[in-house]
Write a protein that binds this DNA or RNA. Structure first.
Lengths: 353, 353
DNA sequence: CTGAAAGCGCTTACAG
DNA sequence: CTGAAAGCGCTTACAG
């Protein structure tokens, strides 16, 4: 099934070398020959075999995009941006989900290297990621977006987590909150680590107390987050605001709070981080920080493309850090003055009364 | 960069043929030879060149997954399921977004065929999809999930749109609604077509009027949907319920209705179709129909895997249609008895008062 | 149990 | 302007 250069060559009565040149649009071929060959190519609906081509040229025009979980809207955004931009240069992208597990990440990297992808984009490295560091050593072009390796090794496109967290906490502080719980991400991720540190620093600066029981690791995980929220609510003196280190957790916080029969933001304020699309939905209106995922993804793929096309030297790593923006919406407000009552009845968010 | 079989062979002092057998775990090799070669393989951290292997074996262990838009949660779910299942058999998946444009779909198919993918899963074919029909002709294994080709050509895994729509309309009818607007998907998709037809049929059966101005094509598009909703609200006698043919549109309907200062479901009931994850969120609680995306995706990839592994004959097309389930949540309720007033002030959803 | 050799479908110096 | 030939890194009959 499928014709080969050889078929085209014999039908056109020229050599495969000539056909190859014509297919690849190289100059230095007589017009009449070109036309004849092209006609036959079209007639046969010839599709070159990219596998054979890769064999010779040592490039597959394929890149690997490694994310934690494509069903997370942030990663879906990245995937879309990367794929669209790559296609422009006739590159194809293989998307793999690590589920944040090193064991599956190792398999993914091996599988992608066996397939000889031309480069990698990692959206979910851990700070100390041995497999990835080893990969970097091999010299194959890699770009990290969102999260970086320890010591910012390699090329990185991210946003300033420190500033982002400060914006949120200052916003809550300005509203009057003094008891702000923080649900952090895993410390093994640069985002988790940096956002936690930034929280502790700004809290200190603003003289906000940070007792250990108000700072919990939600692991970017929804069920874990849900348990943490229950813990907060069971406290003799619960927080007046909860800041979750990403929007997926913040949405879970919102859900849990509402399910507990409390009002947002009247009883508790909630803030997230990332600004995933659904955060802006009228029924959600989550206060959060724009992490510029799509823009970063575009920068990442642009960088990779230039390196692969030889426009950029691959050896000196680039680094771009974007300024985050605070998106104040409706889940944050003034803190309640008195203790709230747990209600049995569900009460909706955004009730203005 | 990277070792080849030849390197391993000369270091182990055996032939490349023997090394190849060992790498591929074939029997009939002396244990001592096997051990020697395996040791060297590991020491060198040898990774076989899948491109060269594909060249010989005529399979790339790669499949193409064609969706309209990976940022749509339904497709992200599908992508995750397919990728995870494929990896089990050491297959890799290339995900491509068509944005429902035939022109980009053509490019995608060509690019994937050039790369010699072993099979395709299409999650977003149009009823008359010439490029896809042509592809089917070539005999390359294809599976369609969610949407099918005219005449159900090829192997299809879907859900029963007719039943799903009937469930929703009967639910609304039972609540007392007699003026139910319908925002359909594009008729060029089987889902769009079938859901529209089902709506018209069940409306007739229940003696619900279906004036043309209450039936609009939202094109599975959010801005279009938003305009349609404005149109509905401007009507002298607006509908008491709006049924959108998918959840993405339903979310937009919800957003628009709330932005207009109306309450859901007190002023207007809203229903969707698909049951995307966010539909169950406490702040959303969208009444919808479970289209079983993940289950269908799993069936699709299982089917493809068996065909590629030779377990299933590829020539006789399979067809599986799942029963949908109604998910009654909080966006549907009894119709209002009197005309509503347009309010300037936003009022939240789920306000129990 | 092992090896020599052909061949998968291309590209690319090299020669003419 | 065109062609013969080598070679990319594997697998797989075939022979021994």
């Amino acid at each position: 099934m499928g014709y080969t250069l050889k078929d085209i060559a014999s039908l056109s009565e020229v050599s495969v070398a000539t056909v190859s040149r014509i297919i690849n649009g190289q100059p230095g071929v007589k017009d009449s020959t070109r036309k004849k060959v092209l006609d036959i190519t079209r007639e046969l609906n010839y599709l070159p075999n990219a596998v054979a081509k890769s064999m010779k040229t040592k490039q597959t025009r394929t890149i690997g995009l490694v994310v934690a979980d494509i069903t997370n809207p942030s990663y879906a955004d990245i995937a879309k941006t990367v794929e669209a931009r790559a296609r422009k240069n006739n590159y194809t992208v293989i998307i793999c989900n690590t589920e944040n597990k090193t064991s599956v990440q190792i398999k993914i990297i091996d599988s992608l290297r066996e397939r000889r992808v031309d480069g990698f984009i990692f959206a979910s490295v851990k700070l100390r990621d041995k497999p990835v560091r080893d990969l970097l050593e091999t010299g194959i072009p890699c770009v990290f977006t969102g999260r970086h390796l320890e010591g910012y090794r390699g090329t990185f496109m991210g946003s300033d987590n420190r500033t982002g967290v400060h914006l949120v906490v200052k916003h809550l502080h300005r509203l009057g909150h003094r008891k702000i719980a923080f649900i952090s991400g895993p410390r093994e991720f640069s985002t988790g680590m940096e956002r936690l540190r930034a929280y502790l620093d700004i809290a200190k600066e603003l003289a906000i107390e940070t007792p250990p029981h108000l700072i919990q690791d939600g692991g970017y995980d929804r069920t874990k987050t849900s348990r943490i929220v229950s813990g907060f609510l069971a406290l003799p003196s619960p927080p007046t605001a909860i800041f979750a280190a990403n929007d997926m957790m913040a949405l879970q916080v919102l859900d849990s709070i509402l399910n507990a029969g409390l009002r947002v933001p009247e009883d508790i304020s909630i803030a997230g981080y990332d600004d995933i699309p659904v955060a802006a939905h009228h029924s959600i209106q989550l206060t959060t920080v724009d992490g510029h995922f799509s823009r970063l993804a575009l920068l990442a793929i642009e960088n990779l493309m230039s390196r692969l096309q030889g426009g950029l030297p691959s050896n000196k790593p680039a680094r771009i850090v974007l300024e985050p923006h605070l998106r104040v919406r409706r889940t944050t407000g003034k803190p309640r003055q008195t203790a709230f009552l747990r209600r049995s009845e569900d009460v909706g968010i955004l009730d203005p009364n």
